[in-house]
Amino acid sequence: MKKLMSAVAGLAAATLLAAPAAAHFQLVYTPEVNVEAAGDLPFKLIFWHPFENGHVMDMAKPEAFYVVHKGKKTDLMDTLNPITFTGSGNAAAAFEAAVPVRRNGDYVFVLEPAPYYEGSEDLFIQQITKSYVNKGGMPTGWHEPLGLATEIVPLNKPTNVIAGSTFSGKLLSDGAPVAGAEIEVEFMAAEPDMDANRPKEPTAAPMPGGAVVAVTDADGEFTFGIPKAGFWGFAALGSGPAKEHEGKELSQDAVIWVRAYDIK
């Protein structure tokens, strides 16, 4: 009964609120997050507005890029290569990588980008981003926190959420739950074309009324109904402990991407 009441409370907190601008979202994207055969997975790291195929922001060299598999952390900085990604209105610096995935289990990819200066708001943005891949269908720790400055810990398996069901997460800052935080929700309507370094045709249009927002409860948890198959991103803006960079305000955000599927 307690779990049911918590889920209902979370759903009630998943409300739509107006936002003044489209959401920035850091991508750590690979097309297939459930793989069977060993091989090298292609990744694109793009700072973008993927719901509306909007403005692309220039990425500087990341501070860190790594993967955690069965508790072991592997540095991936040497896999990164600079690219130019072209959105609907502009082109910007981004990165790509080819990452070997050999053993079964969960792979949690973590990107700690360099802070990005947003001139229109006169502040820096750093979106610490997690993305998930599973090989062989074996769960090995997708639900474990990684001890990041701020992160969203998934409470549903992030590689096979059912479209029409819900996704829940728990927001942490310095390991502690964050209550009353706004979580921006983004659908990757235009997925990157891995060969052309530009978006594919969008499969949905942004919602009216601004960004879609959920709010964490007293335990730092939120729940959002997933209406459509595809990649969904969740960002907690300013949830990190760092608040300043180079003498200006810093929004240190927690971002997570999950994959939803239709039942066939």
Rank of each mutant, 00 (worst) to 15 (best):
M1P: 04
K2A: 08
M5A: 10
G10F: 02
A13T: 04
A14Q: 06
L17P: 00
H24D: 10
H24L: 15
Y29I: 06
Y29K: 07
G39S: 11
L41I: 13
P42V: 05
K44W: 01
F47R: 10
F47G: 03
W48S: 02
F51M: 12
N53F: 05
G54F: 12
G54N: 10
M57P: 00
D58S: 11
D58T: 06
A60R: 13
K61E: 15
E63D: 14
Y66F: 15
V67Y: 02
H69K: 08
H69T: 06
T74P: 04
D75W: 09
D78C: 01
L80H: 09
N81W: 00
P82G: 03
A93R: 15
A93K: 15
A94I: 04
E96Q: 15
A97C: 08
A98N: 03
G105D: 11
D106Q: 11
Y107R: 10
V108M: 13
L111E: 05
E112S: 12
A114Y: 11
P115I: 13
E121F: 12
E121Q: 14
F124V: 04
F124C: 04
I128Q: 08
G137V: 11
G137F: 07
T140S: 13
G141I: 11
G141M: 11
A149C: 01
E151H: 07
I152C: 02
I152P: 00
V153Y: 01
V153A: 02
P154R: 12
N156L: 02
K157M: 10
P158L: 07
S165Y: 13
S165A: 14
F167V: 14
G169A: 09
K170N: 05
K170H: 06
L171S: 06
L171C: 09
L171V: 14
L172T: 03
G175M: 06
A176T: 10
G180S: 10
E182V: 01
V185G: 00
V185D: 00
F187C: 02
A196Y: 03
A196C: 06
T203H: 05
A204G: 01
A205C: 02
M207D: 14
M207Q: 15
G209F: 13
G209T: 12
V213P: 03
A214E: 04
V215C: 04
D217Y: 08
D219R: 11
D219Y: 01
P227D: 04
P227N: 05
G230I: 12
F234H: 08
A235G: 01
A236W: 02
G238D: 02
S239W: 01
G240M: 07
E246C: 00
E246G: 00
G247A: 08
G247F: 12
K248V: 06
E249K: 15
E249S: 12
E249C: 00
D253C: 14
V255K: 09
V258H: 05
R259C: 09
Y261Q: 07
I263W: 09
K264W: 03
